[in-house]
Design a protein around this nucleic acid. Sequence first.
DNA 1: CTGAAAGCGCTTACAG
DNA 2: CTGAAAGCGCTTACAG
Lengths: 354, 354
Amino acid sequence: MEPTDASDHRARPLVVDGARRPGEPALMMRDVAARAGVSPATVSRVLNNAPTVRDEYREKVLAAIAELGYRPNRLARNLRRRNTEMVGVVVSDIENPHFTQMVRAVEDAAYRRGYRVLLCNTDESAAKQAAYLEMLAAERVLGVILSPSDPAAPEIRELLDHSIHVVAFDRAVDDERADAVLADGGAAARTAIRHLLEAGHERIAFIGGPRGVSTGAERLAGYEQAMRAAGLEPRWADGGFRIEGGQQAAEAMLDADPVPSALLVANNLMTIGARKALAARGRRVPADVALVGIDDPFWAELIEPPLTTLAQPVREMADRAVTLLLERISGRRTEPRRDVFDFELRVRGSSVAG
Amino acid sequence: MEPTDASDHRARPLVVDGARRPGEPALMMRDVAARAGVSPATVSRVLNNAPTVRDEYREKVLAAIAELGYRPNRLARNLRRRNTEMVGVVVSDIENPHFTQMVRAVEDAAYRRGYRVLLCNTDESAAKQAAYLEMLAAERVLGVILSPSDPAAPEIRELLDHSIHVVAFDRAVDDERADAVLADGGAAARTAIRHLLEAGHERIAFIGGPRGVSTGAERLAGYEQAMRAAGLEPRWADGGFRIEGGQQAAEAMLDADPVPSALLVANNLMTIGARKALAARGRRVPADVALVGIDDPFWAELIEPPLTTLAQPVREMADRAVTLLLERISGRRTEPRRDVFDFELRVRGSSVAG
DNA sequence: CTGAAAGCGCTTACAG
DNA sequence: CTGAAAGCGCTTACAG
């Protein structure tokens, strides 16, 4: 038996022949009202759990709903109430396990609270982000959880102007009225460098992401800072947060002189690319080159050697994002808020000799 | 002051700096109409690309829209038109890379055709599937692409009764009015067994999924059939399509006598579990035990040895599912249709000596 | 506590 | 080709 959740009010009618005939006009509130001998207003009150309905009526209405198999039309309610119960979730690549985890966690948190998720995948494209944000505005969603491809997009301002709440997730947005749930990528990079320094490395190179997004910029800054603090020369390349970019950047570094003894890679996709490059160049991990990746995708433990990572508390962060959104929606909070979480270093075989 | 039509009771201030002040009532069609000197009906026609609008008016309307920053309210259109541009996508676990690929591909195909995706994650729970399908019905989505946790759920019938189209994806549903886009899991299992027989294996065990869903049932049937045809005794266990289940099933098999020389695993999550079991028991792949997995997740090429898999053409299938849905929506087709795709064997290191 | 009536912001037959 | 008017199916002040 499945655990039944509270929202599951499936008092199922005995429909005589198994099904209403298809194509029949959908039932409306007034049909239920007629059957129950009350007004549509009363039906509406029952459906919305208004406390003021007499028990006798409530039961009649519930019975009529069950007998007829009535299903309210949300479209009408949404128009009347001028909003929906939907939350837009905008990510740049849902196939990236980091975002998959996040989408999953947001969906979960939203579902538990009675909200639904409209999924928007922007492919790191500013144009697609713009199209989606416009659509979310037109659709009058309650709020948007946004991991921006373009943090300065004018559509973000427009959403906020229309009082549609925005929570920046994972990556910051420029507009200061948005809430934000972020992880401290600068600290993550510094932690990683410290770990590699302790393991005796000095020639530590960095494969970074686009500096136009906050995660790209701050992870690079953290790396440079940690290297300079240790009296070492930073050396880095931009892999665009993509597999191929990571591979190309790593290949170039491995072909250069001196060859790095350790590689810090700024996201999980580029780490896949870096591993390909290492394999292609015949470099063993960690004997020849140590490898540390930011993000903790589930495959980190599947590969050989397992990948040392910096992990964000994705579920907690997703939960927080939904919480912040609901605080704003309910009006309990009006000032923007910015929560920053810490990464956690997970040492595995790719950075230390087994 | 703006030039206002006498009928416009809501004189609207000029927008000075490009941004409307937050909290102001949203612009409506009649505001645009007043500014352009036409009726709301004409604004609507322009917005919907009705061919009958005089060019001069069209331009005036477009200009007014741009100047005011008007964004139509989809909620109202949806109510009036009695539908939405949304498609529900229901999967049992979006974190399962197989479904991630599928959701991604469906989102892509839907986006290109102007539809949006409402994401529903059921966690293999019949109750959650029921709640989501009810919501999709209430929301009057155009259609549902469904990989069912519960193929016999009464909500599926209800959707179809309400003329909301359903395309079963990956897994079949009982109701015959639904379209279906499936892959031939029986043939996949037979192909896998043939491959292992050719490699000289005879003690081939199978880790299957729940027989309550079509993929679980038919992959098992294909395995049994192929084994019997080869004069071999089938041996299988149910791993519930989950990592832990796959691990437990594999451990039991490895502890039994005789130990299988090859393992066919019915989905990618259980394959992860099987690998854990093999590692825990100190069995080398493929030297001690060959391993073949159904599904071709991206991590199959990342691990050591790379995993031999049976791959579904997920993108093609997703495209087809969206196509079938749109055929039904447009009324171009009224009879249900069922498309079955073939898996493809991808031989990698886990099943043949390197 | 309940009902009649207005209204959410569009679209679309209908008449001109 | 265009506009006035009705209506999509609910919710919610308002009056009783």
